[in-house]
Amino acid sequence: MRKLIAALGIALAVALSAPLAHAVQPDEVMADPAKEARARELSRELRCMVCQNQSIDDSDATLAKDLRLLVRERIAAGDSNKQVLDYLVARYGEFVLLKPRFEAHTLILWLIPPLVLIGGGLGLWLHIRRRGRVVEAVADMPAPLSAEEQARLQRLLAGNDQKA
């Protein structure tokens, strides 16, 4: 039992420390801590073209390493963060950004999530409203016929009802 608890503890420690691990290699790190911080910040904003939904800061892919080095080269050359991002967008397209810019050609990317949310809420509201009407209609229905009333109805339909 103790071995199981120890194994679970180790697995938990590894799982919790995984988000802290980055793919940046020691040979990539810049000597200036301020520039390195900028490079890491930019690397978290850029998409790995191989992994697709992972930043180049977290990716072990060769292309991600090349992009990290390119970001560091541009920073070392004196480019601002915006200039580095503009350079990479010009070279690789908007897809390289994990968070697309809010511009006319990316407007649909920004509008789809709220429109889907509003549409889903409207659909849910209509469903609940329609269901409420069905419940009200069932509540307004007359009570079922008693056995005596059913027998009288059968006699009426058969045409031999003595009572009038």
Score class of each variant (00 low, 15 high):
Arg91Ala: 07
Ser59Leu: 02
Leu156Lys: 12
Lys82Val: 04
Val134Thr: 14
Lys3Gln: 14
Asp57Gly: 07
Glu103Met: 09
Ile112Asn: 12
Leu98Thr: 02
Met141Cys: 07
Leu88Phe: 10
Asp58Pro: 01
Ala143Leu: 15
Gln54Tyr: 09
Met49Glu: 11
Ala90Pro: 02
Leu98His: 05
Val71Arg: 01
Leu98Trp: 02
Arg2Tyr: 02
Ser43Asp: 04
Leu16Asn: 12
Ser17Pro: 05
Cys51Gly: 03
His127Asn: 02
Ala21Thr: 06
Lys35Asn: 10
Gly121Gln: 09
Val24Trp: 05
Leu145Ile: 09
Ala137His: 05
Glu103Val: 13
Pro26Ile: 14
Gln54Ser: 11
Arg72Ala: 07
Asp66Ile: 07
Gly123Cys: 07
Phe102Lys: 09
Cys51Lys: 08
Leu109Gly: 12
Ser59Ile: 00
Gly78Trp: 12
Gln25Val: 00
Val71Asp: 00
Ala11Lys: 01
Ile128Leu: 14
Ile112Cys: 13
Leu156Met: 13
Pro19Asn: 09
Arg131Asp: 03
Leu122Gly: 11
Gly78Ile: 12
Asp27Tyr: 02
Met1Trp: 13
Asp79Leu: 00
Gly132Pro: 05
Arg44Gly: 09
Gly120Tyr: 10
Ala104Cys: 06
Leu88Ala: 10
Gln25Gly: 04
His105Glu: 12
Gly120Trp: 11
Arg130Pro: 07
Gly121Trp: 05
Ser146Gly: 06
Gln154Ala: 13
Leu46His: 07
Ser146Phe: 00
Ala104Phe: 01
Arg44Phe: 11
Arg155Ala: 12
Arg68Asn: 03
Gln150Arg: 02
Ser59Met: 08
Arg129Pro: 04
Asn53Arg: 14
Glu136Phe: 08
Gln52Pro: 08
Ile112Leu: 14
Met49Trp: 08
Ser55Cys: 04
Arg38Gly: 02
Glu45Lys: 15
Gly132Leu: 14
Met49Leu: 14
Ala37Asp: 13
Gln52Gly: 12
Pro33Met: 06
Arg38Pro: 06
Gly132Lys: 15
Ile56Phe: 00
Arg131Gln: 06
Arg40Met: 13
Leu109Cys: 15
Pro26Leu: 15
Leu145Arg: 08
Ala139Ile: 15
Ser80Cys: 01
Cys48Asp: 08
Ile10Arg: 13
Asn160Ile: 00
Ala64Met: 01
Lys163Ser: 15
Ala90His: 12
Ala64Tyr: 03
Gln154Pro: 11
Arg68Asp: 01
Val89His: 05
Gly78Ala: 05
Ile118Cys: 00
Asp32Ser: 04
Met30Ile: 08
Ala147Arg: 02
Ala21Trp: 12
Trp110Ala: 04
Ala6Met: 06
Pro33His: 08
Arg72Asn: 01
Gly132Ile: 14
Asp66Pro: 07
Glu36Met: 05
Glu73Ser: 06
Trp110Asn: 11
Gly119His: 04
Ala7Gly: 10
Leu69Gly: 11
Ile10Trp: 10
Tyr87Arg: 04
Ala137Asp: 03
Gln154Ser: 09
Pro100Arg: 14
Lys65Thr: 12
Ala64Ser: 05
Ser55Asn: 10
Ile118Thr: 01
Asp140Glu: 14
Ser59Lys: 00
Glu136Trp: 11
Ile128Phe: 10
Leu145Phe: 13
Arg47Ile: 03
Glu149Cys: 05
Ile108Pro: 06
Ala18Lys: 01
Met1Ser: 10
Ala13Gln: 13
Ala143Ile: 11
Ile112Ala: 12
Ala76Asp: 03
Gly93Met: 03
Gln150Trp: 03
